[in-house]
């Protein structure tokens, strides 16, 4: 049997009505083991204007590199709407390394799915961590042309040690790398 997947449609500007019950900017509570990080950034359009109606969803492994399953205390899922200034902020733990294709290991990363008014289907991207030696051998980063890899790697905040800055640029010269999955 072979069916065709249902077409995507935009999440629209009013998704908060149906989705905000599961807003979760604290992906890992205090009971979850791991190195605490906060990630903050802004999401901007092709003119550099802030996008105040984006829905950002995060999926990540635990600190041991295991993806949570039903019943685990840690769900590994975050849902964060962008604010009026296009800003978003969430806290979590740094995930461990996960198996990659063909026996490789991936560098620690978050998977992100972003929808908004004006996006007829979501974009998917990844966020990697700064100063992480494993980035050099990550099989997915390796598929990205070197000049664009930095759009996927967060920066450490100069003022706050546990804060990482990572912006999402939807369009243009400095456009964030999005993946065809």
């Amino acid at each position: 049997m072979s069916l065709v997947a249902t077409a995507s449609q935009t999440v629209g500007p009013y998704f908060h009505i149906g989705l905000s019950w599961a807003d979760n900017a604290a992906i890992a509570g205090p009971e979850v083991a791991g190195q605490r990080v906060t990630i903050a950034g802004r999401i901007l359009d092709g003119d550099g204007q802030p996008i105040n109606d984006a829905l950002i969803e995060v999926w990540q492994a635990d600190s041991q590199g295991h993806y949570p399953e039903a019943g685990d205390g840690f769900r590994g899922f975050g849902r964060i709407p962008s604010g009026d200034d296009g800003g978003f902020r969430f806290s979590t733990i740094k995930p461990g390394r996960v198996a990659g294709p063909g026996g490789t290991l991936q560098a620690p990363h978050l998977l992100l799915s972003i929808g908004m008014r004006g996006l007829l289907k979501r974009v998917t991207t990844r966020m990697y961590f700064p100063d992480e030696p494993a980035n050099a051998e990550d099989p997915i980063l390796a598929r990205v042309e070197p000049a664009r890899r930095r759009t996927l790697i967060a920066r450490a905040s100069p003022s706050e040690p546990a804060l990482l800055i990572w912006n999402v640029i939807m369009q243009g010269e400095t456009e964030t790398v999005f993946f065809d999955l």
Partner: peptide, 18 residues
């Protein structure tokens, strides 16, 4: 969509455990 659609080619990626 005009200012929000990605303008660069998407990077084809494999399906990993993630």
């Amino acid at each position: 969509t005009v200012k929000r659609a990605p303008s660069r080619a998407l990077v084809l990626a494999p399906h990993t455990l993630s």
